[in-house]
């Protein structure tokens, strides 16, 4: 199949984003500011991990290694995740804003992929979109609560985390070298189309939350992840994530 390289690049971006954000979200387990949030971030982590496994399984059918090998044995340069998902969890405000901006993009991406010409991905998209809807629902509820219905402090913290996270979130949409090919073959409408939908979806929610989207001089500042150039945060996280696996890669769990 001539579109294999383009398709694999798209799947690696998605699978790696999901795996890394799943690991980051799981770092809230036991630490959430209230028990419900602890459970929410842990549940979302479990969903994302499931989505990454489903995507790595599709990659396996396209000739890549089996999912555990792909997830646990690559080094940083082989990952195609965006910088946004790599950052440590920071404070709850940072993690919540990242969760909001990332999950909205994640949901809309799968929405576009429901009509993908690559049928296995279209089927997966139809399945997971309903799950991600819960993630967006959760994030949007809290962003609005803390932005518009909380205190002066909660509003200020949400605005400063938006200022920090928004430029990074633009890295989600780093164009790929395969944009034209993916669009022409009907696999995926493309990062630019996705970004447009994303802006239209987050804007009214942020407005209701009295939060202003910051001006970004150069969106390309957060680019590089899709080509294997990452922040200083990814490799230490991978080292920690694969620690147990590396003790005995052939062990069965």
């Amino acid at each position: 199949m001539s579109n294999d390289a383009a398709l694999k690049d798209l799947l690696f971006r998605m699978a790696d984003d999901d795996l890394i954000i799943a690991h980051r979200n799981s770092e809230w387990t036991g630490l959430g500011p209230i028990m419900e949030e602890d459970i929410a971030f842990s549940s979302i982590a479990q969903d994302k991990l499931g989505h990454s496994l489903a995507l790595y399984t599709l990659l396996e059918t396209l000739g890549e290694a089996e999912p555990d090998t792909t997830a646990f044995t690559r080094d940083e340069a082989q990952f195609r995740c965006c910088h946004l998902v790599e950052y440590p969890i920071g404070g709850y405000d940072f993690s919540l804003m990242r969760h909001f901006l990332f999950d909205m993009a994640d949901m809309l991406r799968f929405e576009l992929l429901e009509s993908s010409s690559y049928e296995p991905l279209a089927k997966l998209a139809a399945k997971v979109r309903g799950e991600i809807k819960y993630h967006v629902f959760h994030a949007a509820t809290w962003v609005e609560q803390l932005g518009a219905k909380g205190s002066e402090e909660s509003h200020a913290r949400m605005q400063s985390s938006l200022n920090l996270v928004y430029p990074l979130a633009l890295g989600i949409f780093e164009p790929s070298q395969f944009e034209a090919e993916l669009a022409a073959s009907g696999i995926f409408a493309g990062e630019a189309a996705l970004q447009e939908k994303w802006i239209a979806a987050i804007s009214p929610i942020l407005e209701r939350s009295n939060l202003r989207i910051p001006a970004v001089a150069d969106p390309a500042q957060a680019y590089g992840g899709r080509r294997g150039y990452h922040t200083e945060h990814l490799q230490p996280m991978l080292t920690e994530m694969t620690e147990v696996f590396r003790i005995d890669p052939t062990a069965s769990w």
Binding site: E37, S43, H138
Partner: peptide, 8 residues
Amino acid sequence: RSPFGPTL
């Protein structure tokens, strides 16, 4: 109270 509970 929360859209997430003890299981997914």
